[in-house]
Design a protein around this nucleic acid. Structure first.
Length: 967
DNA sequence: GAGCACTGC
């Protein structure tokens, strides 16, 4: 890390004397420090007339308690005012800003006489260019038809590879149904095709459609788009299909793919294009009726991700306007009917799957075969305070399910008593069925290893904690500590140190044991798995509408997920699956996981709806397959209005227009636009890419502490996860420039993933291209000089972060030295909505007892075992004043203050407060205008924008971070 | 004192 230090950031320490953080310290400005003195006296004078410091004479019983409570409140309020940061200003700044505002106002009155009309955002000139490939509606080309047909006939006649592949294809279950499938598709506008993995629907159906057109001499009128929920599947399926057609993938051949930042395009007509769901959604921005497509195949619709559900609604609307468009939905068998009903009971057909049989066992069988004795359930009493905790509604649902389980339990026990031995029934009766028993997992693994034939074992656990625990349990046992076992933990955050080990078939006599999250359910496929152990849980993100809070908790898997897991055992030979829950639980699992649209905040979705001009948001969402809570829509709309993406009539603002086109969430989009305007592009793009994709850090199992420490080192004294990230990525760039060796060395030392870093780097370029097309920057490199003149200014970067992350601000209650413990305690963190929250232990700020400021920004707040802020940046007053919410100037008990959205308060003399407020209002006007008429920022002192923006930067910059100097 | 998984011209 050492080389990268200070690459961007000038250290401003020691220059500050404008703002003071701790009011206890004498300030050069007279006002604030005097008010502190007055405040200090106020609390003490309260109990006048009584015993010294005690309640007044004559108070009895309860009243004494009330008196103390009142005094406590008053003391607290006084302390709050005392601890308010003070916003000050150097005299020369004040003078400068006054002149500036005068000038600007004079200029404005002149301008207003000249022009006063609304400025429309200019249409993105590159929209057309991007989509040129798909722009034109398909038109028949007889020449091409003929050529395509001859080509296909020639291949069928004597292309060796093609004919070999044909033999293989003929064995797929879907191949036998070719004619029926084509008939259904021809006769109907919408068809649902269901089938389990291995039936070949994804690879075959698009080919049937294309070949059918080509054979009839209609090849040029066919363009099949087949969407996938995941990038990897889009690529691998496209490559597979190209191979079956004896062609290279993309490059103007019949088959290609497009995913974010990567494309291998097929020819324009007579082609099959595999892409991610997101790509199809992006096309709709410029081709609303999908004029350029003849067939849309939506694959894996049963997974119900938010984009796929969204596409369904849009397609349903498009169908009547495009009578020739064919839509084919491909789903798992379990809920194919749901989709058929949604499209007016359109025809369905099922393709039988082809996988090897998998023998299933449940908890009852596992207890019997292993003789494992699960710990008996201790009597559980819920503490009374639990009732009053947040999320009561949620708990009620849980209790209902528990209740149902209890009711059915006796009947179930009676039933199994006839088939299972007495001990097993006893244990089932007395164990805690909600507990995640890792000892049992270890026992069944041992059992398989000792008694079963060769074959890899795949274990599904909900998360890091359980993976870590099981890994420890196994490696502690003598039996597993030799070369005959390969234990491989698999988690998206763990480095795949030896990726080949995961997929490689081990030598005979060696057993592979993979301990995974649901990453192995769909994303990673390991062919030689014969045994699956399913603990039956999955961590699930949810959205608690009542509390406007995202949650992440372990939940029971769905029937569909359990099936998917089971299927992982039968890919190459018959397999076995051990579910570690009882058959009653198995019968009570929900068929499917709740669709993502009902589990997630809807800000981005609502913005997309407006951007695609799909009407009123509520009306549109009402048309979804399953409607989210209307309150979730309201929350999203409120947040979009607050960030000025929508106006109060739900109309897209110019800012909203730009935000909808950036491939990131609206908050991150704001950050990107402001970063470009203020010319600290590269660091802001680093943060934006990382927040919207994932951070580039990996954590090896067992080295969590080391990784934490390393990140803290990289953070230096920034008190910011976001700036730490900027440092880390800048360090990587340095290392990369010194060659492959230096790069991998750097990543190894700092626990970073080269793959993720490269992805982030490409994303940054993509953002830049977009900004360039709007006109905010010149070139497509995030490093361009003109857009980075302020990239070394930490304080400004924090301010730009604030422009995006606001109103995600928490208050820090600094903690004083605790004499008894002899140390500083961690600071208390509070948000207005949630009360006390915690900084996530992964954050570089988590153990801090002191911050340079009373306020921290965060991107993600999520409730798991507690409410955690996952990534944080301590932020000083000026960023909040210029890039936060509405500014107010107030006076409480004679203490003058400047406020942001009424609840973030800073002490400031009214003179300064009004000056700041006026300057802020000029900035808002300026930014609005820049959004309306995008262009490079002119920094010269002869331009209005240059003067205003520079004045603000100067104020932000001189406000020192007091991390070292002030306490 | 802790990190399910995806996705975007």
């Amino acid at each position: 890390m050492s080389r990268s230090k200070g690459r961007y950031f000038n250290n401003h320490r020691g220059r500050a004397h404008g703002a003071r953080w701790n009011a206890g310290e004498e300030s050069e400005e007279a006002g604030p420090s005097r008010t502190y003195g007055e405040q200090g006296g106020r609390g003490r004078g309260h109990g006048r007339g009584g015993r010294r410091g005690g309640p007044p004479e004559g108070l009895r019983g309860r009243d004494i308690g009330m008196w103390y409570a009142a005094r406590g409140r008053a003391k607290k309020a006084a302390a709050e005012i005392r601890n308010r940061p003070v916003v000050g200003m150097e005299p020369e700044h004040e003078k400068h800003i006054r002149t500036l505002l005068d000038d600007v106002q004079k200029q404005r009155s002149e301008e207003e006489q000249q022009e006063s009309n609304e400025v429309k955002p200019r249409r993105n000139p590159r929209d057309e260019q991007y989509h040129s490939f798909y722009q034109h509606p398909l038109t028949q080309d007889p020449e091409l038809d003929k050529r395509l047909r001859l080509e296909l006939e020639a291949k069928q006649a004597d292309n060796r590879q093609y004919k070999d592949m044909q033999e293989f294809r003929k064995k797929l279950p879907s191949y036998n149904m070719r004619h029926e499938l084509l008939r259904l598709i021809n006769e109907n506008q919408v068809v649902v095709i269901s089938g389990e993995t291995g039936c070949g629907k994804t690879t075959q159906v698009p080919q049937f459609i294309l070949d059918h057109h080509v054979e009839r001499g209609q090849g040029s009128t066919c363009r099949v788009v087949c969407t996938q929920p995941r990038r990897i599947s889009a690529i691998s399926v496209a490559e597979r299909v190209a191979c079956e057609r004896a062609e290279p993938c993309g490059n103007g051949n019949s088959t290609g793919y497009q995913i974010r930042l990567e494309a291998r395009l097929p020819r324009q007509q007579g082609c099959i294009m595999y892409c991610t769901n997101g790509i199809l959604l992006k096309w709709l921005e410029t081709d609303q009726l999908l004029q350029s497509v003849s067939h849309v195949v939506l694959d894996e619709v049963h997974e119900r991700d938010i984009i796929s559900d969204f596409l369904l609604v849009i397609l349903k609307d498009v169908l009547p306007k495009r009578p020739k468009l064919k839509v084919i939905l491909m789903s798992a068998t379990l809920n194919a009917e749901l989709f058929s009903e949604y499209f007016g009971s359109c025809p369905m057909t099922n393709i039988p799957g082809f996988t090897f049989p998998v023998l299933e066992y449940w908890l009852e069988d596992v207890l019997q075969m292993t003789k494992y004795k699960p710990p008996e359930q201790r009597e559980k009493r819920e503490p009374i305070w639990m009732k009053f905790r947040r999320g009561k509604r949620y708990r009620e649902d849980e209790l209902k399910k528990e209740q149902e389980f209890k009711e059915k339990f006796n009947g179930y026990i009676k039933e199994i008593s006839t088939t299972y031995p007495e001990e097993v029934v006893y244990y089932l009766q007395n164990m805690d069925h909600e507990k995640m028993d890792i000892d049992m997992v270890s026992t069944i693994i041992r059992h398989i290893c000792l008694n079963k034939a060769e074959g890899a074992i795949l274990v599904f656990l909900p998360g890091w904690e359980q993976i870590s625990k099981l890994n420890d349990l196994l490696t502690q046992q003598q039996m597993f500590r030799n070369a005959n076992f390969r234990i491989i933990p698999l988690h998206s955050m763990m480095p795949t140190v030896n990726q080949r080990q995961v997929f490689e078939r081990p030598p005979p006599g060696v057993r592979k044991i993979i301990i995974a999250t649901n990453i192995a359910e769909t994303s990673i496929t390991i062919d030689d798995v014969v045994y699956v152990v399913n603990l039956g849980r999955v961590k699930e993100r949810n959205f608690d509408v009542a509390n406007n809070l995202s949650t992440l908790k372990p939940e029971w898997v769905s029937v569909a997920a359990a099936r998917q897991r089971r299927g992982r055992a039968g890919r190459v030979q018959p397999g076995e699956c051990y579910h570690l829950y009882n058959q009653l639980k198995a019968s009570m699992l929900t068929d499917y996981q709740l669709p993502e649209m009902l589990r997630t905040p809807l800000d981005e979705l609502c913005l997309q709806i407006k951007s695609l001009k799909l009407g009123r948001v509520h009306d549109f969402i009402q048309k979804a397959l399953q409607q989210p809570d209307p309150r979730a829509v309201d929350l999203a709309l409120e947040s979009l209005v607050q960030m000025n993406a929508l106006d109060d009539r739900e109309k897209l603002t110019p800012l909203g227009y730009h935000l909808a086109r950036l491939p990131v969430s609206p908050t991150i989009g704001r950050m990107i636009l402001f970063g470009a305007m203020f010319c600290c592009l590269d660091p802001i793009l680093t943060v934006a890419a990382s927040l919207s994709f994932k951070d580039p850090f990996v954590i090896p199992l067992g080295k969590e502490k080391m990784a934490d420490a390393q990140r803290k080192l990289i953070a230096e004294d920034t008190y910011s996860d976001h700036l730490m990230l900027v440092n880390a990525v800048a360090g990587w760039e340095d290392a990369r420039d010194h060659g492959r060796g230096a790069e991998s060395d750097y990543c190894w030392r700092n626990f970073m993933s080269v793959t993720t870093l490269k992805m982030l780097d490409n994303m940054k370029t993509q953002f830049c291209e977009h900004l360039a097309s709007i006109g905010f920057v010149e070139g497509k490199s995030s490093k361009q000089r003109s857009a980075n003149r302020n990239s070394g200014n930490r304080q400004l970067i924090k301010a730009i972060l604030c422009s995006g992350l606001y109103p995600n601000v928490a208050q820090v209650r600094q903690n004083s030295f605790n004499r008894r413990e002899g140390k500083y305690r961690p600071a208390k963190i509070v948000t207005p909505q949630d009360g006390r929250v915690k900084i996530h232990p992964k954050s570089v700020n988590c153990d801090q007892s002191h911050f340079p400021s009373n306020w921290i920004l965060y991107h993600l707040k999520m409730k798991s075992s507690d409410v955690f802020l996952h990534d944080t940046t301590a932020v000083e007053p000026y960023p909040l004043l210029f890039f936060g919410g509405k500014i107010g100037v107030t006076s409480e008990d004679g203490v003058e203050a400047i406020t942001v959205d009424d609840h973030i308060k800073f002490s400031a003399p009214a003179r300064i407060a009004h000056l700041v407020k006026d300057l802020r209002s000029e900035l808002d006007k300026l930014l609005k205008q820049k959004i309306n008429q995008p262009g490079m920022t002119c920094w010269g002192q002869d331009t209005k924008e240059g003067r205003i923006m520079q004045a603000i930067i100067d104020l932000i910059t001189t406000q020192e971070d007091h991390s070292q100097s002030d306490w």
